[in-house]
Amino acid sequence: MAIEVRIPTILRTYTDGEKSVEGSGSTLGELFADLDGRYDGLRERLIDDDGLRRFINVYLNDEDVRFLGGLAAPVSDGDTVTVLPAVAGGAA
């Protein structure tokens, strides 16, 4: 068992085109660190010095991880993590 991570189109250049990859860790932060070992550069597109990037949405199963502690959110085998770029913009 592992944690499934679903990757959006724009980040599949880091995963050899794979729509979904697997990783391990006990928190979201550890999971991303684990993935970065195999998919170089992916982590940097997801987080910056302040934590999760503002315009990247990360979900643990059905919840936005911002409401679950962000990178400290606990994850376990069998969970699904979904990454989606936020859709945003505006005249300002």
């Binding site: 949405n57 059905d62 936005d64 979904t82 989606l84 859709v87 945003a88 505006g90 005249a91």
Partner: peptide, 23 residues
């Protein structure tokens, strides 16, 4: 049609949970 979570005349952002459901 999606909710504009910002409800703003100068900015929009899809509501993150609605976006997950639709995607």
């Amino acid at each position: 049609s999606m909710l504009n979570a910002e409800r703003s005349p100068t900015f929009y952002r899809f509501d993150s949970l609605e976006q997950l459901k639709v995607w």
